[in-house]
Write a protein that binds this DNA or RNA. Structure first.
Lengths: 226, 226
DNA sequence: ATTATAATCGCACATTTGTTCTATGTCAAT
DNA sequence: ATTGACATAGAACAAATGTGCGATTATAAT
């Protein structure tokens, strides 16, 4: 799916790339503005958000010069010579920028809005199949999901969907009494749903289907230790 | 080289290099400080001036993050020393190819030779950044490491080393009776070693140090579900 | 024509950030 | 003991910098 960028956003992208090549560090918002002939810093800010949303760049919120191109130079170069209107950069990059939405805790439903700022988790595309859309990342807080073999601090990558196949691992929101988010394998059994922990030593629970809200399918669990 | 840098200035240089590799843009003075354990911004400022005077870096005065390493060769060289086998090209790519050595099971020590076929696991460098050398990947077979929150089929990325810091997660080979490989947090206690499961609900075990052989430090756990 | 969405501008504002200044500590050479 | 260069903190500060908001225009969709 190739998408064409508005001319000025393309200019911004090119300016950043050139500036990087020339200086070794990224430009500030105002430098970009000057470079592409835009006086308003907020407009540049807007351009950057657009570019980040579409995966051309990724950036740290509110940090100066914290911009990076998501693709490597080869791709950036090739798109230059190729069709100038179509920039399939993000689609071809070997690294995937998954938006980081926040934290997942037992006591609350998972957030649906990106955090202010555009934090992302970088995943190499090779780890996924082609189906790399609709992904988002959450960080687990607390040890409440240990029966899913997920511990405090782990990162889970989810695909947003409200229905999963039998046996797939999902983040579910239990709306019965207190409300609770957990990671479980979901099995539909008539009007009940069986939630099975990933740890085979632990027992499943059953709840009425209407009290279970699937928030997304878990496609990856990532734990960094250092 | 001709002149050896004071330890901390060297550290600063290395931190900048690693940070650049990880983020694609240079760190701020305060980030450097935090990274090398210096509270005073003025001291970092001082270090940077030193490094600039001696030509290791160059920078724009009073501009945030406006640091660059003076030569690409140096950058490539430092990567070379970190991972002698990796080509400079690979060192700069945003994706890391970790060799896949085989399976890790409770009943056998981990393999040390790459499998015929050169399989690799692709990890985006942004997840590592620092110190990407000496890594290898194994796939977990069986549920014997569930107390480390690692289940059947999970992939673990390890750094090959025979000594770890207290509290770090490692793959250890227990040479006492039957012999067994497990993933545990390692604590040195005189001539005993305490092996602590990652799951805080589970109890540690203690074994004589001479019966414990560290096979590598666990730097990442990866679980794919689809 | 009407509405909605995207693009644009200007400005105020709260942070972030590099620098400077002062003070203190270290350590080798005098 | 004294000097002097080097190393380390901490605080204060001014400049740089990203963001938010309101207002305006342009473009596209219905």
């Amino acid at each position: 799916m190739t998408k064409s960028l508005p001319e000025r956003q393309q200019k911004v992208f090119e300016f950043i790339r050139d500036y990087l090549g020339e200086n070794g560090y990224p430009p500030t918002v105002r430098e970009i503005g000057k470079g592409v002939g835009v006086d308003s810093t907020s407009l540049v800010s807007y351009y950057l958000r657009r570019l980040a949303e579409q995966g051309y760049i990724s950036r740290e919120a509110a940090a100066s010069r914290a911009i990076r191109l998501t693709s490597d130079e080869e791709l950036a170069d090739s798109f230059m010579s190729a069709a100038p209107d179509a920039l399939p950069v993000a689609a071809l990059a070997d690294t995937l920028s998954v938006p980081f939405l926040g934290y997942i805790v037992a006591s609350a439903p998972i957030p649906v809005e990106p955090l202010p700022g555009n934090e992302t988790v970088e995943i190499s595309r090779a780890l996924f199949g082609r189906d790399a859309g609709n992904l988002f990342a959450l960080q687990v807080q607390g040890n409440s999901m240990i029966d899913a073999l997920v511990g405090d601090g782990d990162t889970v990558i989810l695909r947003h969907q409200e229905r999963v196949e039998n046996g797939e691992m999902a983040a579910v929101w239990l709306t019965n009494n207190a409300g609770e988010t957990t990671l479980k394998k979901v099995y539909y059994e008539n009007d009940m749903i069986r939630l099975q922990p990933a740890n085979p030593l632990m027992a499943p629970i059953r709840v009425p289907a209407r009290h279970v809200q699937v928030q997304g399918k878990v496609v990856m669990v990532l734990r960094r230790l250092d």
